[in-house]
């Protein structure tokens, strides 16, 4: 071993230079980057991220291939000539934002199980910072699906409407939806250390919210009770916002406001929950 090691006389310790004292930005950015590095270094994640949109559109989007155009227009309650894929694309994108929280939740449980959460929390890093980095990390992972899905839709011959501004608003809505669900998911699994929890909860949440949203079929055909759920379902807001852009070129911006409110509410509640209940191991 070499002897030229930095040594300081006792009492005259040179403290290394630090960032803003008390701030958590450094920890947050480091942990978020770690989530993304770990995610996108995994070839399977890349493969699934790229394959899934194509599979959705190919399999689900072909469900009405042999239905007459007139009947489909009536069923979808959409302007003449709207294909099912045009109708479906905003819904599928909204749906796929729902499950992104599961990834962050699984990586959190892995950190607890392998003790890495202890390594993080024995540094000047708060539980709220850990939580927020997981929220942003898993939401970002979901957002990568957006461009892939849009390219896939283009390849399947979806008609695109709307201005650049409308598209920006739609995508912002998807980001908010992803953050909101990710925040919600991570908050309810904050105290869990069981591998199976994220999967179970994902199934429990995703299925009803997916169908009771108007994302895949028009909500006007639902029974009353399901329409009530759809009226309060952020997945539906995102689907309607996207459909407003893509099909009608006339979005209702109120939906974007609702999505913003949803994301904000989930982040605030989730941060409070995580600061108190995030388990270390």
């Amino acid at each position: 071993m070499s002897a030229d090691v930095p040594r300081g006389p006792p009492g005259q310790r040179r403290m290394p230079p630090r960032g803003v004292v008390g701030g958590q930005w450094s920890q947050f950015s480091g942990l978020t980057a770690r989530e993304l590095i770990k995610t996108f270094r995994n070839p399977w994640v890349i493969l699934i991220t790229f394959a899934q949109p194509f599979m959705w559109l190919a399999f689900f989007g072909s469900s009405f291939a042999n239905v007459s155009v007139a009947y489909l227009d009536k069923l979808l309650d959409a302007p003449p000539g709207t294909g099912y894929l045009d109708f479906l694309l905003p819904g599928v994108l909204a749906t796929s934002m729902m499950s992104v929280g599961m990834f962050g939740s699984m990586s959190t449980i892995q950190d607890k199980r392998f003790g890495f959460m202890k390594r993080i929390l024995i540094t000047p890093t708060t539980k709220a910072t850990v939580y927020l980095s997981k929220v942003v990390g898993s939401a970002t992972r979901g957002l990568v699906q957006i461009p892939v899905m849009i390219v896939a839709a283009w390849a399947f011959g979806v008609h695109f409407n709307g201005s650049v501004l409308m598209w920006a608003g739609w995508i912002a809505g998807l980001v908010l939806l992803g953050i909101g669900f990710s925040a919600f998911f991570l908050a309810i699994t904050a105290s869990s250390t069981d591998w199976q929890t994220p999967g179970v909860i994902a199934n429990f949440i995703t299925m009803p919210l997916m169908f009771a949203s108007g994302a895949l079929f028009p909500a006007s055909n639902y029974p009353g009770w399901m329409q009530t759920i759809a009226n309060w379902n952020p997945v539906g807001y995102s689907a309607l916002l996207g459909r407003g852009v893509l099909v009608y070129a006339n979005p209702d911006w109120l939906y974007l406001g609702y999505l913003g409110l949803f994301a904000l509410l989930m982040i605030v509640i989730g941060t409070l929950v995580a600061a108190r209940y995030l388990r270390t191991e």
Partner: peptide, 18 residues
């Protein structure tokens, strides 16, 4: 690198190499 981020170290690379 991650440890440096968590400890909010601005100038850590030299020390890490050492």
């Amino acid at each position: 690198w991650l440890q440096a981020k968590l400890q909010r170290l601005a100038d850590w690379k030299g020390r890490a190499e050492e």
